[in-house]
């Protein structure tokens, strides 16, 4: 029952966002609201097993949602900017020293690992290639390994981000 309600709510919210500005009840017209409710219920019935597969509803708490809304435009965007300046430098000079390293994440939930892997892919000089599903360690292709780092067996995830501590943010949101 809860997966159905959550999926229906998300689908209805997406429908409302996509049809904003169509009428006079708030921003919406009556026909759009009715159609959206029917379509959201059909979507919820069909896909209720996919969205909430891990049976954890942590992300429903308002504090975590608020943190997620702050996380994407501020700390994540700063790292994204830095990543792109870094890539621009590497493209022009071709000054690279690539390799695949093992990074200890310290996260336990699937959602946390998912967010960390996606954040790593879009931030400076790193691209997630694989996951060790038993220990939740990530394998990361790095474009410019610092001297001496290739000898270390395992690297802490906080060492990857110089400006902002993204793993701590993700731990606060997802765990």
């Amino acid at each position: 029952m809860i997966p159905f309600l959550v999926t229906t709510g998300m689908a209805f919210l997406l429908y409302l966002i996509l049809t904003a500005g169509s009428g006079s009840i708030g921003f919406w017209s009556l026909s759009e609201l009715a159609m959206g409710a029917v379509l959201a219920m059909i979507t919820g019935l069909v896909t209720r097993k996919f969205l909430c597969r891990s049976e954890s509803y942590r992300l429903l708490s308002p504090i975590r949602l608020l943190l997620l809304l702050v996380y994407v435009p501020v700390p994540f965007f700063i790292e994204l900017m830095k990543a792109n300046l870094d890539v621009a430098y590497r493209v022009i000079t071709l000054n690279i020293r690539p390799g695949i390293i093992r990074v200890h994440s310290g996260l336990k939930t699937d959602l946390g690992i998912f967010m960390l892997a996606n954040s790593i892919t879009l931030t400076p000089g790193t691209l997630s290639v694989g996951i060790d599903e038993e220990t939740n360690d990530l394998f990361i292709h790095t474009i410019n390994i610092a001297e001496g780092d290739e000898k270390k067996e395992i690297i802490e995830s906080t060492e990857l981000f110089r400006l902002v501590n993204l793993p701590a943010w993700i731990r606060r949101i997802a765990e």
């Binding site: 020293r97 695949i100 996606n118 691209l127 997630s128 290639v129 394998f139 292709h141 290739e150």
Partner: peptide
């Protein structure tokens, strides 16, 4: 982001090694 991870994982599985790499922990694991 998701599709980049998927392609990288699939490429490493299908046996494409990173060129010029100084270390490859995924190969060792």
């Amino acid at each position: 982001a998701v599709s980049a991870h998927a392609i990288a994982r699939a490429a490493h599985k299908s046996g494409i090694k990173p060129m010029l790499a100084v270390v490859d922990r995924l190969e060792e694991a």
